[in-house]
Design a protein around this nucleic acid. Structure first.
Length: 281
DNA sequence: GTCATTTGACCCCT
DNA sequence: AGGGGTCAAATGAC
């Protein structure tokens, strides 16, 4: 549910386009943030948090209905409401750690997913009423394990933990935080290679990097092993675009790209979902 | 004893 | 109807 599934998007094109427009706006906001450095006291990254991939089809608890006394299991009918609106975003990290104190409250095996999904709520849900929650799903096995974390709501608690030393000491060239989105949705039915421009942004050694691959991405061939070669080609072919949209590209890029699904040429658009890992070397 | 995790059941939503 | 999100009793760790 947390993932933008192509088949569902195909069924609701209008909604999808609205999401894309929103994504574009978010990107513009991010650009502004990057161009306007924050002061020493500012919590810059926090203000940019919401600009990561909007998990549009996720919803946020309207009313958790947390009472001190809970009814017995059989009396729980209608005791809680499903999440209703969205304030969610996705991060892909090599660790579950994110500097906040979470308490696990559930785990589910998800259909067609290799790994189970874990559900966390803020430790301070009851003492401070913090409604932040997250879902963590492993998406890649060790040794280069990666976790897709979907956050819902922002922390309102004050007792956040410091980022663990493990996280701080996380040294390159291990994969680092990365999120990406497809900027536009178009297709080229003639050559069966839809054009899906990609934005990639990451935080690597405290340095923000944003790359904008605006070339044609042969999505249909995304699963093939030469994907990285394609991206490299694309990058060199659009070096001017990259340099105009990034502050620094001093790192070599090492990427694994995978697109799970991308289809529906009949409706004249395509969409892919995927993961990108980026290493600092 | 306290708090976190596990796990099966329950419930909402599509 | 079934998948996915949440609850809470049972269990484990400290």
């Amino acid at each position: 549910m947390g993932i933008l599934r192509p088949e569902k998007l195909c069924a609701n094109r209008k909604r999808l386009m609205e999401e894309l427009v929103m994504g574009r706006d978010k990107a513009a906001q991010l650009q502004n943030l990057l161009e306007k450095p924050t002061g020493p006291g500012d919590s810059g990254p926090a203000s940019a948090e919401g600009l990561l991939i909007p998990a549009s089809f996720q919803v946020v608890s309207e009313d958790s209905g947390e009472n001190s006394k809970r009814p017995a299991a059989k009396e729980r009918r209608g005791c809680y409401k499903r999440r209703k609106t969205l304030d969610a975003w996705i991060k892909i990290l090599p660790t579950m750690e994110d500097g906040h104190a979470w308490r696990k409250y559930g785990q589910k095996q998800i259909l067609n997913a290799k790994f189970s999904r874990c559900y966390f709520r803020c430790t301070h849900k009851y003492d401070q009423g913090c409604l932040a929650t997250k879902q963590v799903q492993k998406i890649q096995e060790e040794p280069h394990q990666m976790y897709q974390t979907t956050y819902f709501g922002h922390h309102t608690c004050t007792n956040t933990l410091k980022i663990s030393q493990h996280t701080l000491d996380y040294d390159p060239p291990q994969p680092y935080l990365l999120s990406f989105q497809l900027n536009n949705i178009t297709s080229d039915v003639q050559d069966q290679h839809p054009s899906c421009p990609i934005s990639v942004k990451t935080e690597c050694n405290k340095e923000e990097i944003e790359c904008n691959f605006s070339g044609k991405l042969p999505v249909a061939a995304a699963a093939e092993s030469n994907m990285w070669a394609d991206l490299l080609t694309m990058r060199s072919a659009h070096e001017d675009v990259i340099s105009s949209t990034t502050t620094t590209i001093s790192h070599d890029l090492e990427m694994d790209f995978l697109i799970d699904e991308c289809v529906d040429f009949q409706n004249d658009f395509c969409f892919g979902e995927g993961e990108v890992s980026l290493s600092c070397v």
